[in-house]
Amino acid sequence: MSTTLERPALAAPRKVTSSKDSRTLIRSQARAGWALLAPALLHSAVFIVIPVIAVLVLSLTDYSFGDTWSWVGFGNYADLFRDVDFLASLWHTVLYAIVVIPISMAISLAVAIGLNQKIRGLGFFRTAFYIPTVTATVAVATIWLWIYNPGSGLANGFLSLFGFAPNRWLADPATALPSLMVVGIWQGLGTKIIIYLAALQGVSRDLIESAELDGAGRWQRFANVTWPAIGPVQFFVLITSIVGTFQVFDLVYVMTQGGPGSETRVLVMDIYQNAFQDLKLGYASAETVIMMIVIALFIGVGRLLQKADAND
């Protein structure tokens, strides 16, 4: 069933003066529009467009906070693809995103569906799930550092109940990144749950009841009514998750500093290291440009998946 909304045809101008009035009205509306847009445009120009241009320009130089600098063309980009730290950071970031995004989205949706039911203590659960989101990452990371502490941490204490040997979670190259992923998944749930919950509450009850009357089971109702209805929200959550996971930094900075070795070094950490520790601002700018491109690629893939899902 589809409904087409058609724009009503404009009545022919009866007088030249009314046509003039209409143009004046449109112009004044346009002016009002620009006036309302101006603060946002100004903000975007100052804090987004100018920095992006500056990063693009800097990425073509060898600027390192000294007195002199020179143009190096695409030299920084060529060096980046020979830089094992950058390649490792890129891989860790992509891996982090690939694992954290789908798992956190799936858990969030499941929890949101649970919280959308009429259960007791709903307010408590909603608050409990949202608390990690409003807690400072440094505090979250500090608590998780204790949980992962090899000697006195909760994780090893819990596993020891089942006879498992203690693990050196963050000090072991094999478990350091997965340990961070767990924290990343946990910390990101709150926001996603709230968004999903809002979307679920917007799904038409009429459609669900109709499906129920047609004999659709619980899974069929979810797959054919709820899932398509929350499609746009899924896409929004996906995009914000991609951007968020690619920008993961504070968690890594507090918990592992990118170690052991470079096992948990992620892109923003590498950019930070190059820019503010090694003072290679030109090089770090090139890295930032690459990160923007990778995020755009991921968003593009997400968009394609969303389109394919919508066509299904």
């Binding site: 190259p173 170690g259 070795g261 070094r265 290679k280």
Partner: peptide, 16 residues
């Protein structure tokens, strides 16, 4: 300044 970080990372990789 760049080498400090390189030493820390790469020596750790060798040790581990």
């Amino acid at each position: 300044l760049e080498m400090r970080g390189n030493f820390d990372i790469q020596l750790t990789q060798a040790v581990l």
